[in-house]
Nucleic acid binder design. Structure first.
Lengths: 374, 374
DNA sequence: TTGATTTGCGCAAACGTTTGCATAAGCGGT
DNA sequence: ACCGCTTATGCAAACGTTTGCGCAAATCAA
């Protein structure tokens, strides 16, 4: 890879802004002040309450006045001030979302699901990133509470190992739902993937394809997701009467480079693995590169299965078998659960868990048999 | 590819929720009501104004009282109500973002940049998706204005061909900045990529590598980005004394399948192309697959260059040459510009354009010469 | 005609802040 | 003792809604 730096670096944007002279907007006399409910009332010689009720479709207002109000509202381009309304009724109609980061496939899809479900229910979505940093996460919580969100969705940062900062939210009785990355041993509402099942299925699939020395690339084990994926892997092995070998398990940060590094180590073993189940497709790509570099064939010499069903797993050569997480569904589910809990406010139910089932997408990287096992 | 549907589909989540019985929170007597500034004032026997000023660090309040206030605030876990504050001062401290969708590489990265820049400046970010649909876009605008955002960032939906719904925003004098996808011929604030330069550079690079019959895959031409990328392509050809051939230009929706379809057509030409510049990496992957299927070698027989520098362009075989758009920088730039405009409210400057320069990443798919051109 | 009920609307108090203005206390100078 | 000045605080009005309650007029049953 080579970086042809034949362009000016765009960081200088701060300075060279085209400013063609003074502006001549077609509507230079601007109607600065927004029309308020009070303005409407004055112009119609009725009270603000009537206007308010008319706009909210209260039945106690005659059709005639309602019509007058609505018409004038349109004419003046009236926009309700949801801050004021929120203040008065104590409802902001906003949901907060805290994610480690929004780029990347997984979280952006989840957020898409969240936003879709929320806006369908008439809520706005406020988004914060923790940048995988528990300190940021703490700030984000503060932020959310100031913004008067009515409910919060969280996926934990990688560095979050304790839970105290969330107590605040519960003390305030703000509905809280976790998704994907949660802290175990705490009774919380959550929507998670059955990561164990995912790990299990991927590994079982490899076993069915005849692989026997299956290595595992895992992530930080204090995170539920990686721990469970590994458990699934181990369960499948045991069920098949195979031992779980520490030497075949490589715990890392799940970067692509970790894949290349780890694979080099594994290939240097006296008995190198004949397959890899990685808890991330990224790492698996690294593995794939190393394997190809060494002249090994995939899937003949070595089988590969990953996790997340990233976009690119269909684009490598060969295509990668992977576990799909239903990201968007997770977002929608989490939001629905949150909304449900918000409705039930007051009556405390036990924390609820929703467990989504992953799906296995079998592709070339693991298909050694002519007829796939299933 | 095969879809092993050995799991229950998770859509049934609506029903089977674990509900282990009634909850016993450790803190069952909840402090429902949030402490307000008034509560603080009462408990300290001072006025609300004093409390307010103390919390905002006004210098006219004695250190002693300030300290008392802050301490009690901490003790009671006081959280300012930003709705109320916003209402009073007429500032919501929120920015609105309207994007076609947030999943995918580009927009999620841009949004990441936006969120980062905004929160650094003390603003929240409200996100809406238009789902590439102009009707949604209209609703989103309404939504944003109700939420009293102080500024709006927009990237147009694919189906947006006119501009009327944005007039509302300008009439209200709400600062507005477009990014990436804009409508041409309108004087608006915008941060865009120099797409023409991108197209030009990619094409020139192909020419330098000795390719002569370069095809182009383009997107909907009413969108500035695709139009400009094509212009860049044509400019490069002309500069090299080569004709622009309609038969080598394939306009499509920039899906992967469009790449396979289009390439099949092109390869059926009496004189098929010896290189492709695609305005999207997705399409290019489709092209790549078709090309490999036909037994043609990349880059020997056919050179490929794409646009967007998607994650996966490093993962195909061979790796794809592509134009990088500096997505996150674009988000940050747009936000900074917006904030700047917000500060200057009242003094109308001419609409400003910021043009980011793309970068060319040369990878194997286009490197035919031993020594790259530059 | 009377009394009861409905219909349609207004009054005014909230919601939790911020902020211009007034005021009270303290203090040094004359 | 008075004046002027600083320093610290309070009063009350806003911001734009929503909403409980009350009241008049209209309708209805007798």
């Amino acid at each position: 890879m080579q970086y042809l730096h034949d362009s000016l670096h765009p960081l200088q944007w701060n300075l060279p802004v085209l400013r063609a002279g003074h502006c001549f907007f077609p509507f230079f006399s601007v109607a600065k002040k927004r029309a308020s409910i009070t303005d409407l009332a004055q112009q119609l010689n009725i009270s603000v309450s009537t206007v308010s009720r008319a706009l909210n479709g209260h039945s106690t207002i005659s059709d005639a006045t309602t019509k007058r109000v609505v018409e004038l509202a349109n004419k003046l381009g009236y926009q309700p001030n949801s801050l004021a309304a929120g203040l008065r009724r104590g409802r902001s109609r906003m949901l907060g979302v805290i994610v480690p980061h929004i780029d990347g496939n997984f979280f952006s899809q989840v957020v898409k699901g969240i936003e879709a479900a929320a806006s369908k229910a008439g809520y706005h979505v406020l988004i914060c990133q923790s940048n995988e940093d528990v300190a940021h996460e703490r700030e984000n919580i503060e932020t959310m509470m100031n913004a008067q969100v009515e409910g919060i969705l969280v996926s934990l940062s990688r560095t979050t190992r304790e839970f105290r900062h969330f107590e605040k939210i519960r003390k305030r009785d703000i509905p809280l739902v976790f998704f994907d990355r949660i802290l175990e041993g705490h009774d919380v509402n959550a929507v998670v993937l059955d990561d164990r099942a995912g790990g299990y299925r991927a590994t079982r699939h490899l076993l069915e394809q005849g692989y026997r020395r299956i290595a595992h690339f895992g992530g930080p084990q204090h995170l539920n997701i990686y721990k469970h994926r590994r458990q699934g892997y181990e369960d499948a092995l045991r069920e098949h009467g195979l031992p779980v070998l520490e030497e075949l398990i490589y715990i890392c940060d799940m970067k692509m480079e970790d894949g290349t590094d780890g694979m080099k180590q594994l290939l240097a073993l006296p008995e190198p693995p004949d397959a890899v189940f990685s808890a991330s497709d990224f790492t698996l790509v690294g593995v794939l590169e190393t394997v190809k570099e060494r002249g090994l064939r995939v899937p003949e010499d070595i089988g590969l299965a990953g996790f997340s069903n990233e976009l690119f797993s269909r684009l490598t050569e060969p295509k990668l078998t992977s576990i799909d997480q239903h990201c968007e569904l997770m977002g929608r589910s989490a939001t629905k659960l949150l909304l449900q809990i918000m409705e039930e406010q007051g009556q405390h139910f036990a924390p609820r868990h929703i467990v989504l089932q992953p799906d296995l997408f079998v592709r070339a990287s693991s298909q050694r048999q002519e007829k796939p096992g299933k």
